[in-house]
């Protein structure tokens, strides 16, 4: 609980808009309490910038408790910073030392164009889900919930896959900027449950086609995504997605939906 004050140097990626060139800007962060969260540290820097009439650093945030998936940036080459299984909003400054130099960069990927500074456009993830990441059930037409038992082990596995918060750290950390972990987590979550069987074949191929159309890279099994994932979503779902895609290719008679961009 003991508090220390840190003086840090921030090298922050500044970019005015999607098509403008970016650059690093250096800002001191002084008197930073070790009890601050990383984003609170940036709040303090920003408030100071505003009072000096300078443009504050833009970064995404919302819930600040590690569940909404809004926040994310690369700190010294690591997505969400140095603490494992922790989003940047829950990362606290006690993980750093006085005098540290920190390089803050946005998620870099062609599928995630920069909006401004550290803010990127992750709408590609929404479009991947729109391509089939759901179970089609009309509101009000569901049958009694306990009619279809689901083995506890299966339900637990589905929940493991469903923990993804859609922050995009997997893409940011992947050497190929692949969205495989994100896509695989949703495909696995739904294909593990009996409710998800009817659309299973089409879901896998349509989501994968959309993932490719968004310009993300392919998986080359480095495992960086799993290491960067703040929710510990497992690589095994990518293996499962691959199985689902093969299954779909062998069994499905319908063609792939045209991916949208």
């Amino acid at each position: 609980m003991s508090e220390e004050l840190l003086n840090l140097t921030l090298h922050v990626w500044r970019q005015d808009g999607p098509s403008q060139p970016g650059r690093f800007e250096t800002h001191p962060a002084t008197g930073i309490s070790t009890h601050m969260s990383f984003l609170e540290m940036l709040d303090v820097v920003n408030e100071d910038l505003i009072e000096k009439g300078k443009s504050p650093i833009a970064f995404d945030y919302d819930c600040r408790e590690g569940i909404c998936g809004s926040c994310g940036m690369v700190v010294n080459g690591v997505a969400h910073g140095p603490q494992r299984l922790t989003t940047i909003c829950q990362l606290h400054m006690r993980q750093f030392n006085d005098g540290d130099e920190l390089w803050l960069e946005p998620w870099r990927a062609s599928g995630f164009p920069v909006v401004k500074d550290l803010v990127v456009d992750r709408s590609a993830f929404d479009r991947i889900v729109q391509a089939g990441g759901y179970i089609s059930i009309r509101t009000g037409s569901a049958t009694e919930a306990n009619e279809m038992p689901v083995a506890k082990a299966m339900a637990d596995q589905a929940m493991d896959a469903a923990e993804c918060i859609g922050c995009g750290a997997c893409v940011a950390a992947c050497p190929n900027a692949s969205a495989s972990l994100f896509t695989a987590a949703k495909i696995s979550h739904l294909s593990l449950l009996p409710q998800g069987q009817a659309e299973r074949l089409d879901r896998a191929r349509n989501m994968v086609a959309q993932m490719d159309a968004e310009g993300f890279g392919g998986c080359t099994n480095h495992g960086e995504c799993e290491a960067a994932c703040p929710k510990g979503v497992s690589l095994r779902w990518i293996a499962r997605m691959n199985r689902e895609v093969v299954r779909s290719a062998v069994k499905s008679d319908s063609g792939v939906k045209t991916a949208r961009r």
Partner: peptide, 19 residues
Amino acid sequence: IDQAVAQGVPFAREYGGLL
């Protein structure tokens, strides 16, 4: 609950597979 289960919400379950 019926609606959410049908959508694939992975609620906690007992060993018998019920909610």
